[in-house]
Every structure is written in C-alpha cells, then in structure tokens.
Amino acid sequence: MDKTVNQKAWFLVLPVFLVVAFSAVLPLMTVVNYSMQDTFGNNQFFWNGVGWFKELLDPSTDLGGRFLASLGRNLFFSLVILAIEVPLGIVVALSMPRQGWTVAACLVILALPLLIPWNVVGTIWQIFGRPDIGLLGYVLNHIGIDYNYVSNEIDAWVTVIVMDVWHWTSLVALLCYAGLKSIPEAYYQAAQIDGASRWAVFKAIQLPKMNRVLLIAVLLRFMDSFMIYTEPFVVTGGGPGNSTTFVSIELVKIALGQFDLGKAAALSLVYNLIILIVCWIFYTVMTNASAERKPQEGAA
C-alpha cells in the first residue's frame, strides 16, 4: 500500500516530543551524565566512568557502605510494615459493618489518616511522641517505660513503624473492604449450608476473593514504604545516628548535604532501577493471576 508522504506530520508530534523531552528524558540524561562524573563545586566536573556504581556495590567504601546499610534498613522497614498492615487491614475490613449508617462513619474515619499531608503526619507523631510535651511520650514515661525516640534506636524504629501503620493501614483496609463487598451473598449462604466455620469461610471464600486487591495493596504499600522520606525525616531526621536513615534520606544527604552530585546521581539511578524491577515483578504476578481467572469469568 502506498502511503502519502507528508513530512508536516512531524509537527504534530513535536509538542509531545518536547514535553516528554523536558519532563523525562533530559532530566534523566542529566542524572546519567552526573553519575559518570565527579564535581568539586564551581561547576567543575571530572570524568569518573562507572566508578560510582562500583563503589555503590562495594560495602567497604563510604558510599557503598552507606547505600547498602540504608537499603537493608529500608527493606526491613518495608517487610515489617507489610507484615503488620496487611493482616491488620484484613482484620479491620472483616470487622467493618456491611450496611447501615455505620458503614459511612467507618469509611470516613478510615479515610482520615489518608487525607493528612505527609509532613503533617510526621509533625503529629513528632510532637505526640515527645517525652516532655507529647501525649504518648509523656504517658509512656510517666508509667515507667523509658521511651525516647530521639536517643534510643529501638524507640525511634517503633515510632516510625507505628506511625506508618497508623497512616496507611486504612488503605489496605479500604481495598480489602471493597474486595469483600464484591462477594455475592450466595457464597455466604452456600457456606452456611455446607456447615463451614468462620475460619473456613475466610479461607475458602473471603481470602481467595480478596487476593487481587491484596496484591494491589501489597504493591502500593511496598513501593510507598520503599520510597518513604517525609515522615521519618520529620520525626527522627534519620537518627539517632543513622538508625532510621532510609535510602531516600541518604540520597538527600549526599545530594543536598554534601553536594556530591555524581554519587547522588549514581545512587538515584540504582534506586530507581530497584523500584522498576520490583514493579515489574508485581505487574507480572498480577497479570498472570488475572489471566488465570479469565476463563472462569467468561463461563459465568
């Protein structure tokens, strides 16, 4: 087939091309460019090749040590909050009412933490946990528990985790609730007739019907917690010491604190790559799961 050759068509693509170039390609390339160089300020750059990347993966160097340690802390943090938020979210969703005005009330209460800006969440917990004026810190210390998130590493971790659970369990609960609501009443009636116990109903009906929303919940919570910055930065600033310094906090320290643009660029590229890979894994698992379901939906 002969196509009309009309070079003017390029002009139509141009705006998109420019927008994408300025919003994504150029900044990314700048980062790639920085990651290959070293700078001592004054806009003086020196070629460093893949040097920063080698250092990143080598724990014996300063950069590698800091990166790998913060990465480890970050993964541990994500695992802990997932292990708490997912089961807790399911329990909350299961115990929510199914009808009546209480449904709306529960939904509003659950949605509240999700609507608070992140640095405000950080500030709330920063003050809430202070031993001198914070309700939580004061009460804990008053009843004899020595709690101080500024000086004690474990206290700092507990505070950051509890804050994240407080902030985000609602999301998991709301997703699960939506999944539960989509189960037809007949399933529960059939289970009743089949003599299923509460636990059997959960295992045979509710959990399988929720698994898709749960996968989305795990993906969202993993990505968010892996990229967490604002709340721990506001509460602990990454301390005491480096105990709550997550990858993003480390990145900001290197980029803006030390102005090591080369190291920071290399780190952010690797950081980005990890997130992309995890996303891809989740996406593959999710599409496989829905492909498995297709024939059933077609038949029913």
Binding site: P184, A186, Y187, Q189, A190, Q192, I193, D194, G195, A196, A200, A204, I205, P208, K209, Q296, A300
Partner: peptide
Amino acid sequence: STQKRNIAQVFQFPVIYDTMTVGQNLAFP
C-alpha cells in the same frame, strides 16, 4: 441454624470455592 438442618441448596449463580479442586469442593461440607 442452617448448618444444623440437613438441607442442600443450589443457588441461581454457581457457588464455587475458587482455590479448591472439584473433588475438594465436593468434600468441603
């Protein structure tokens, strides 16, 4: 309660326990 009555009921839309095989479905009650 429904559990204690010896009644079987088939609903308008098929109710199947997704994660189980046909045999496990039959064995469930």
